[in-house]
């Protein structure tokens, strides 16, 4: 597949989360990550787009979006961690798992993955206090019964932050 110059974040994400994909398409997933790193407002735009896809009623679209999110967290560094670590984004993940919002309509597969991601970030990103706040609130509410087992490949090792576009 030829690389498209100037593809937007939205375009990359639509391809990476297309419900017609037979399997996860890493070319588009990494393309999305790379595009985030290229754009000054990449992380801010990306989390908004991801939140929307993660809330998709189509399970496969949501699952792929979570895979993209996970890849972004590994590849886009601190700028993205900061955006994910805001309640503005975390609240959208909370809505997915909470019965007060969308939790009753969302599949267990999606909810489980959200909780695994949140928990893994509480360990890997201790400086992002809001992630811990959000996760512990889910526990207090009984939405998370116990800490999930984290697969070895989920140990998030943040990559070094990309060169900042502005000082």
């Amino acid at each position: 597949m030829a690389e498209a110059e100037g593809e937007s974040l939205e375009s990359w994400l639509n391809k990476a989360t297309n419900p017609s994909n037979r399997q996860e398409d890493w070319e588009y997933i990494i393309g999305f990550c790379d595009q985030i790193n290229k754009e000054l407002e990449g992380p801010q735009i990306a989390v908004r787009l991801l939140a929307h896809k993660i809330q998709s009623p189509q399970e496969w679209e949501a699952v792929q979006a979570l895979t993209v999110l996970e890849a972004c967290m590994k590849n886009c560094g601190r700028r993205l961690h900061n955006e994910v670590g805001k309640f503005r984004f975390l609240n959208e993940l909370i809505k997915v798992v909470s019965p007060k919002y969308f939790g009753d309509r969302v599949s267990e597969k999606v909810k489980t993955k959200v909780i695994e991601l949140l928990f893994s970030w509480t360990l890997a990103l201790p400086e992002e206090a809001k992630i811990k706040d959000a996760y512990h609130m889910l526990k207090r509410q009984g939405i998370v019964q116990s800490d999930p087992p984290i697969p070895m490949d989920r140990t998030l090792i943040p990559s070094p932050p990309p060169r900042p576009k502005n000082p």
Binding site: K86, S98, K130, D133
Partner: peptide, 15 residues
């Protein structure tokens, strides 16, 4: 500045 006010407005969802 802009970031500080963003910080102030960033609240956990009421449950």
């Amino acid at each position: 500045l802009g970031e500080e006010s963003e910080e102030r407005d960033d609240h956990l969802l009421p449950m």
